[in-house]
Amino acid sequence: MTVITLTIDGRSVATASGATLLEAARAGGSAIPTLCHLEGLSPVAACRLCLVEIDGDSRLQPACVTAAAEGMVVRTTSPRLAELRRTVIELLFTEGNHVCAICVANGHCELQDLAVAVGMDHSRLPYRFPSRSVDLSHPLFGLDHNRCILCTRCVRVCAEVEGAHVWDVGWRGEHCRIISGLDQPWGAVDACTDCGKCVQVCPTGALFHKGDGTEEKEGHPEQLQVLVRARQQGGAP
């Protein structure tokens, strides 16, 4: 394993070659906000929260997929990045219906945490109040599209880790929606093994256990990471 050295937020960081900027930054003590990224799942670079500035590159680059390189000079915070991240969070809040006070994930929601982290106390853009549905057809779990931010973690965990590929994204643009099976009610999709991994990795209250009350849903992405590491090291899950 070769080691490379780069500068992140003014600190010199050594990391294994092949590491992403996100891995290098976290190892070096810089906190980069992420949402679509989840260790153990393939990266999609879709939420754009992890964009960072790299010297000599006129474009911002997503830290979750950009390879760290020898001698790179990277900034993970700046007034410009702070403003862009706040706007991303505002866009997420305005395109769905996020009513924290009555949400199962209140207090344990990654979207809510990020809103706090980026200082978004209100949205400067108008809320759109889309009309979205709730799927309660599964015996154990529910999906509230109002709270879905289309991060596709559920799609990926089901296809890549569970191997059931129940979820997909349907439609396009603002009409995108997470769909189960061939856009069937979740409960009608035979491929679902009831494993609950999608509920575990969902960053918001969109996927939940049916028994969860307000503030009762806690995500457990770390369970996924234990499982994935065990598999990678050849151990039985």
């Binding site: 999609v44 670079a45 939420c47 866009l91 759109r128 289309l150």
Partner: peptide
């Protein structure tokens, strides 16, 4: 662009809607 956005990334999916409005 709002119509043709694939919807994968947040700024384009939700941003083009706000810009169009």
């Amino acid at each position: 662009c709002r119509e043709e956005s694939c919807g994968k990334c947040v700024p384009c999916r939700a941003g083009t809607v706000q810009l169009h409005d």
